[in-house]
Design a protein around this nucleic acid. Structure first.
Lengths: 206, 206, 206, 206
DNA sequence: TATGAATGAGGATTCATTCAT
DNA sequence: TATGAATGAATCCTCATTCAT
């Protein structure tokens, strides 16, 4: 009854909302402001989104999907060695974080919540993890990386990037940050350090 | 007026608020729920806290200060080698994260919000960073660590821990997680990797 | 402009609106629902009706006029005794009520609302009353009926039918209801009961 | 958590709402007006009522209960003959209709709808019917009344009164109306008319 | 000090109506 | 003539905050 009438308008709203939600906490963002920023009427928001929550979740969800799109695209461009691939992945995430600073800050928890967005989010989230994991596994296979728990590592790398972006951005420029993150991750994975990661008490789940 | 009469009550409120703020975004947390969870009247909240923002900041601030207390205490117990010290710091943070899971999830951005707490937060935050940084510097000095930007590293280590706790906790037990974090950080810092971190374009700020 | 082009469409809208208005109070009936039920676009409603109020009044008015048409037709078919005429009138109203259950439920108050329909309504309403009244007067003249205030009686007979239809329909079949109403009205008007209806304090108006 | 804090205030709100809902259609009644008329803040309405619908239903429900209260009270005052009892019942209903003209108009359909009010309404509704029915049965037993279907008659008498009040009120004074209704009902029930109400096709339900 | 009923500013949401196509 | 996407005025409702007890 409303489906995709004007995708352009939907995107304009999404863009305006992204900016505003990133700049202020949820409850300070007025839908009237979103509407004005998007150049549409207040009622129009409700044509494209169920309500404020839905709009917010859509902002998160769509941003995340954009990241995945780019990542999948880059990864499919010919095969590289694990180090190169790791660089690509990390650079891509960092670049995305720089291009969507607000959005990246928003990628916290809140996705736990209900709704139709949930499933898409979970799916994309898993896809991201598996891309990272496969890169690590590739390195382990070639002997260039060492990692007793690629699954764990894969899970927290995006969060690590986010953490750096938020905490360290104020004191370093983009190139420095990117290099530092890359160095840190590569250093960890290529380290010859021994004796760590003793036998696991418990199997690591999926 | 508002001279705290019952510290126990204040702590009960803080504990209830911590849990709720960790479980939901700020605007979904109702003060009536906080009051009920704490077993006090709604009005009582205003005896101990200026308003909702103040309560929120107090939650962050108080938890963070607890962490600092412990950390400073542990660090003052005799001098150790940099690796041991790093282990201590990381273990302490992880332990704190386990003991205050809700609080730890809260350590997001929101430091934007100003109030009287702001300054305390900034101060404690700086203290934590400088402890971590000094440990890294110690290692660099002894040649056991390599790090072109200890300041940056110091900044994101707490966030790294947070990220791991949140993302990876569901699929691994405590010991595994702790070891994995320790390994990752130590591996990175002790790596003999070369060629990374070229000259900085810009001075790294304070 | 707005010259009705498709009488069929107009009737479809009217029928859909009748059903919906009968099922829910005015403010719960959405024009979007009416449009959908009628199988037309929302904007089309405004081609045939000035606004929501106008549509509502048209529903009442058109239905009522249909009743009057039938009634006038039946009454013109030769002259009968007052009892037969009363039977005809009541049966006709009951039959109409059965054929237009939704519409009949709608015959509530709302004549308050003004518009152009108002006058038509009032006119038709008066015509119905006067038919009923004339039948009663006929009976009074022949001595078969007794009624100190035919005007009053004439006014509430349609409402009486409506009341029976709504309240009693769930527990009795059509024949039973019809007979019961007929019996009730005839019994009242042919009763030999005395002593009631003392002198009126005030003239009964038009 | 809110239950019956100040019954007086609840009644003030109910009274104000009754007046306003009777004077205008639902959607024209503003809660801000109700609040002002009741001398309370807007938010207070929501302490005592779930929402606008709930307030509306409460108005209907409470009014109806008031009628039942009075009626039950009057009926319990000593035993009378069926004619006297019928007079009492009808007079009581008429009197109530005069005292609550708006409310009486409201007693249309809308109760079909959901909610907690529903059950109370149904219960009171049944009680009213059974009082009327018992009076009719009493008369049938003493031979003073004739009625093949007291259940049906009992069901529509309140609606009959309502109908008269609405349709005929504009042209007659109170005494005239009351007497006319009484005469009509008594005339019908005491009529010696014969031959009506042939065998029923179907049992009359509860 | 503790409370929770009362409040009303603030903002999300609805839906009749318009108008470009 | 027919449409339905767009609109924003109109209002319901929320919830942090106050204050009398």
């Amino acid at each position: 009854m409303m489906q995709v009438m004007d995708e352009q308008k939907r995107l304009r709203i999404l863009a305006a909302a992204t900016e505003l939600f990133a700049a202020q906490p949820f409850h300070k963002v007025l839908l009237s402001e979103v509407a004005e920023a998007a150049g549409v009427g207040k009622g129009t928001l409700y044509v494209y989104f169920k309500n404020k929550d839905d709009l917010y979740l859509s902002v998160l969800s769509s941003g995340f999907m954009r990241l995945m799109e780019q990542l999948r695209h880059r990864m499919s461009e010919g095969t590289q060695g694990p180090v190169e691939n790791l660089e690509t992945v990390v650079r891509e995430i960092v670049q995305f974080a720089y291009q969507n600073p607000h959005l990246f800050e928003l990628m916290r928890t809140n996705t736990r919540r209900e709704t139709r967005h949930r499933s898409q989010w979970v799916k994309k989230s898993m896809e991201l993890r598996s891309i990272i994991e496969s890169v690590i596994l590739q390195g382990v296979r070639t002997g260039e990386f060492r990692d007793a728990h690629p699954k764990l590592t894969a899970r927290f790398i995006p969060g690590l990037v986010r953490s750096v972006m938020i905490e360290a951005a104020p004191i370093a420029d983009r190139a420095t940050l990117t290099n530092h993150i890359l160095w840190f991750v590569k250093a960890a994975l290529t380290s010859k350090q021994k004796g760590e990661n003793p036998a696991l008490k418990q199997q690591v789940g999926p």
